[in-house]
Design a protein around this nucleic acid. Structure first.
Lengths: 343, 343
DNA sequence: TTGTACGCGTTATCAT
DNA sequence: ATGATAACGCGTACAA
């Protein structure tokens, strides 16, 4: 059995409640007894029991982290560790711990969340972007339980606190970047159409084309899963277009996808950026490790996580903070996969 | 306030203790009251409070996960998400949750662990391999607190339960694989010398050379940090050797490093596998996404995590399980970075 | 300024 | 088969 507040009390010749107050640094305790008690704590190697404290406080100082199914590609994407680092750092600064909820199936995850929440294991929840959250979101909203999302919610985006990039703008900027290099035949290679990011970046892409007076072509839009093999066929189709129709630049919405695209292009004997330019998204570690290193839109993944923690803790500690939307800035990191058109 | 066991008791016209027994499915409760109580629980939407339960049980059903400093490269390596998936799945099967401990500095982490442990937040701890654990390990050992390591401990490997590959054997197998392809000039590109894996795989490499009667050369051994840029100089040095001295194959102990090596080689206009073969380690997702796809020793990262959870839970639930060493098998996945020597 | 007593939601022991 | 009661370790009104 560990040393408890009572042991300390005895050793210091005070009541348990006094010890408790010393821990909380209650100003109504005399300096002299504070010192005395602290010495006793030190001597006995006392550490407060979080569980008991949580029970008394009705608060755990733990944040639940909900991720998409663990079998999902999600875990494989370097996005995950980075956002995790951010979350962790934000939580750490306020002495909160992070607890994971995952599962193989959607049901698994849902039940995990319910257990966490009803079981009082966590004070709040951060949802990592995915398409399956609907049930979870409504559940949390119903119970009025503190949560924030990373990424933009499907629905009711203006009643759910979330941390996100301005993805329309990001798509716009990336496209304009290519246009600025003289490209006019730009194709959009996006991820799952169900994902809000995909849709938003596409919107930005269209906006930029329109602004430049470049007509939008349906056959220049490709949607593939975030995994790599997926893209192959689509890319081939694009490259088999007659030369004057073939895109000179690609906007690819994820670095992982870009890697796949690079491989496919290499098999087709097209070189980047000589034959075709690529601008990518996310700027994870290996965007600089590919050949060639990718020009990528840095969406500040770490910050996304960091802000999410901060926001959530704010919601938890200050009852009834109003709805918030945090927009994390992006910026284009130029590397070697983009080049001016020859023409 | 949530609905408690007392509310259920009232609703079902029984004592709280009876409800508790129903939850535990105590056989000494009549079917009839079980049904009655369960109905009441359903009706009220009752969920047991984990915190209270933990306090009464002196057990939290939570596993603490200790990772190296979050600023570290560790998070960036795809090793992490995969092992996490494994850990999660193992924990999930036994209804355990995962809680993270990280920090920027070594002290941060150490304090985090102490808080977790003394604070009674977790029932056991899994240590992810790193070099800084010494203090933590001794702390845990002193307090006789359940923990398992992933990877091999520095010291006292035979008194610490750990889950690991047979890395000597893995190094041996990889080297023999290259030798079997006719290679004789094989260089070893390893990570940080402080890491046990690095040393063990090197040992296996030496063993294989010896068995084949190939003399070991000091200038064929390179140690670089797991990060990519690091390798560059060393690789260049190797490639600048006179042609008859230049290695025809490389054994690189991490896929991330291999990516860097591939890039360096490409800059030097050497092609893989035509000019030089590479066998890599870990077989993370992008070993098949590189150009060329890497032949890599699959160390079964998922399994590493999965077994670690299982082991830990075993330690936690059955007092005094003896020391255990779990060895997770590896296997070579052949792709396109290795080829028979021309000669 | 400090001590007393009760509550947080469960489980476990001891009765009945 | 079930109910009453005492822990579990801490926070906090209320009393002194």
């Amino acid at each position: 059995m560990s040393v408890t507040i009572k042991d300390v009390a005895k050793a210091a010749n005070v009541a348990p409640s006094t010890v408790s107050r010393v821990i909380a640094n209650n100003p109504r305790i005399s300096e002299r007894t504070k010192v005395k008690v602290r010495e006793a704590m030190e001597l006995l190697g006392y550490h407060p029991n979080f569980i008991a404290r949580s029970l008394a406080n009705q608060a755990t100082q733990v944040i639940g982290l909900v991720t998409p199914g663990s079998s999902d590609v999600f875990f494989q994407n370097p996005f995950f560790p980075t956002v995790l680092r951010g979350l962790n750092e934000g939580a750490h600064e306020h002495q909160y711990a992070l607890q994971l909820v995952t599962g193989k199936s959607e049901d698994d995850i849902y039940n995990g969340v319910v257990q966490m929440v009803q079981g009082g294991r966590v004070d709040g929840v951060v949802l990592l972007y995915s398409k399956v959250e609907d049930r979870i979101v409504s559940y949390l909203q119903e119970r009025n339980f503190p949560f924030v999302m990373i990424g933009k919610p499907y629905k009711m985006a203006d009643s759910i606190t979330h941390v996100d990039n301005d993805n329309v703008r990001a798509g716009f900027d990336a496209t304009e970047f290519l246009i600025g290099m003289g490209h006019e035949r730009i194709a959009y290679v996006g991820g799952d159409k169900q994902l809000v990011v995909t849709v938003e970046r596409l919107q930005g892409y269209k906006d930029a084309l329109q602004k430049a007076g470049i007509p939008y072509r349906d056959d220049y839009t490709v949607h593939e899963s975030f995994l790599l093999e997926g893209g192959k066929d689509a890319i081939c189709a694009l490259m088999e277009l007659p030369e004057q129709d073939r895109p000179t630049a690609l906007l690819v919405t994820d670095d992982l996808m870009s890697l796949g695209v690079l491989n496919t292009l290499s098999e087709l004997d097209m070189s980047v950026p000589e034959d075709i330019s690529i601008i990518s998204f996310n700027n994870v570690l290996f965007s600089e490790m590919s050949r060639p290193p990718l020009t990528s839109v840095d969406i500040n993944i770490f910050q996304l996580g960091y802000e999410a923690s901060k926001q959530l803790i704010n919601c938890v500690e200050n009852k009834d903070v109003p709805y918030h939307r945090i927009t994390v800035p992006h910026k284009i990191v130029k590397r070697f996969s983009t080049e001016y058109t020859k023409k």
